[in-house]
Design a protein around this nucleic acid. Sequence first.
DNA 1: GTCTATACATCGATAGAC
DNA 2: GTCTATCGATGTATAGAC
Lengths: 213, 213
Amino acid sequence: MLGDQAGKPAGPDAGKDRRAVRRAATRDEILRAAWSLARAEGLAALSMRDLAAAVGMRAPSLYQYFDSKLEIYDAMFGQGMVEALAVVEGGIDGRHGREALRESARALLLFTTNDPVRNQLLFQRTIPGFEPSPDSYAPAVALSARVASLIAELGTSDAAQAMDLWTAVISGLSNQQLANEPGGDRWIRLFDRAVDMYFAALDSPMSKKKKGS
Amino acid sequence: MLGDQAGKPAGPDAGKDRRAVRRAATRDEILRAAWSLARAEGLAALSMRDLAAAVGMRAPSLYQYFDSKLEIYDAMFGQGMVEALAVVEGGIDGRHGREALRESARALLLFTTNDPVRNQLLFQRTIPGFEPSPDSYAPAVALSARVASLIAELGTSDAAQAMDLWTAVISGLSNQQLANEPGGDRWIRLFDRAVDMYFAALDSPMSKKKKGS
DNA sequence: GTCTATACATCGATAGAC
DNA sequence: GTCTATCGATGTATAGAC
């Protein structure tokens, strides 16, 4: 089905390019099918044979595109994290200070709760042997750094602790939402309440900067 | 559930009792080995063959004591939840109001972060097909109800939301701790800060009861 | 180069002998 | 009650067809 293409009218590198493009397209098709299967059957239930069948191959052929099943998870992780980073940037969208923090978190929470399987892969450690590669983890680092920069803007006395507290609150909300009513929207009120709580804590004497910022 | 045994030396049921006792003891030995293996190799890496070897059996013999591997996870879950409930009660220990809430949560957090594998089984959903049985889940319900009763004592205007917020914060702290530095103790300061933040939010006008409580 | 057939080790689980 | 033997499924390695 996925035959190669011999028709290369031009230079000696034309075939190479075409081949690379085709390869990337097939990889993408595999990943798309992997997401679809994972959402339907569960992330851990993803099997190489089923995945291969979904793209019209047999299992061993997948190893032409990915070295192992874990590398498929890794590629999915990388894709998801790139999306998550974009979602956070979209939530910021020119805002500054506390509103930037609030809306970026709201966007991220909407993103994660919209797709439990994706959330499981990105933010829980549920696949037995899986650990993201440095390449795939890079957008996760960027995401964390972006949030940290928003926290730094606020001028709190202990930015590191403020960051820890923020991520704890947001991840706790995500847990809560996914455990109780995946897909529901009761969490939105809880979210605003939690963010208010957090900002109020920043204003408390214990964490205020010596001088007003 | 686990066979009863009264000390009656004579009658025709004496043999039955002895057998039940032996059976329960073997079950317990299997579970102890299961915890040990899970802590050493990972919860998902637990295999029936290895587990059987650890108690001097072959794999099929385990099915005399547990119907399936998932039932072993279920028994472990039940054990862990009973312990967790006891830990929370120990944290309360005659205290009342906010201090009872704070110390019970501190005890629970210490409990969970002390054993990542146990935390994974009890509070994350990481084993593919596993869902706790009603029997094993009962102590989890009791734990939740106990915390809810502590929240109710505080006299907040919206106890349900206060409960959601509390569990979100505590579970977020647990995430944070296990993701960043399992076994570390930096989280203790973060914990106290988070609890202060939560109590301050209860005192804010938005959530205060109409009259002082 | 791409894909397939085949094979292997390991998994949870079952059947039946002793 | 425990064993051996075995089943079907898994991830994956390799040899070879086209």
